[in-house]
Amino acid sequence: MEDMIQMDRTMSTQQDIKIEAKGVQVYYADNHAIKDVDVNIADKTVTAFIGPSGCGKSTFLRCLNRMNDTIDICRVEGKILLDGEDIYDPKVDPVQLRAKVGMVFQKPNPFPKSIYDNVAYGPKIHGLARNKADLDEIVEQSLRKAALWNEVKDRLNAPGTGMSGGQQQRLCIARAIATAPEVLLMDEPCSALDPIATAQVEELIDELRQSFSVVIVTHSMQQAARVSQKTAFFHLGNLVEFDDTDKIFTNPQDPRTESYISGRIG
């Protein structure tokens, strides 16, 4: 363990670090859900969190943009730094934070509004557009980045809930990138999608790496192998191993990681 942290430290000097988590503990009432996790998330990289269900990977992800604040019984300790600033500092407004750290959820959750309004929602509340033309531009760019523009450009006023599952999820991604975040958190974004839609979203994630730091939680090791450059393996609330994706899948250091990727646990 000691060695691993040491290794991270050395790596962190090499790459541009976006998020730095130090000794993070999460409690749900009396349940200790995340135990002393340290992790560094690099910029312009896809980082995957894998592990068996209930291992804490989603919980940890939700700490990164303080979505756990909405749960009364949840308590977070330790430090999480975004660009060197503690996001749990009392002076930080979670609203501002979440504009920088966007999130895409497990199930597509478009608002019961038109496609246009879904994407425009974030820019509107954060005041990112000076006028209608600006807003149109943001919506178009976001939909293009989400590889959805060509499919929906003729029906921007149709309700977002009327699309297929894969389209809905890409709409949610477009919605998230419309606020111009610096980090994009994705919580099992493909678990409710069919294989074709999954492939589309995965392709998209790879594109997004150009502009953002992406953190993705996934229950599928293949997906992690396909889309990520770095992988973190969580088990029972502990961060067991964190390294380059290739390394994790070919030469895991920890026996638990090995058991998991070879299908013996989880």
Binding site: L82, D83, D89, K100
Partner: peptide, 17 residues
């Protein structure tokens, strides 16, 4: 690099109000 998280910008202040 964008604005610091530790200072609340004017718009956020308005929204919080």
């Amino acid at each position: 690099m964008s604005t610091s998280l530790l200072t609340t910008d004017a718009r956020t202040k308005k929204r919080n109000a």
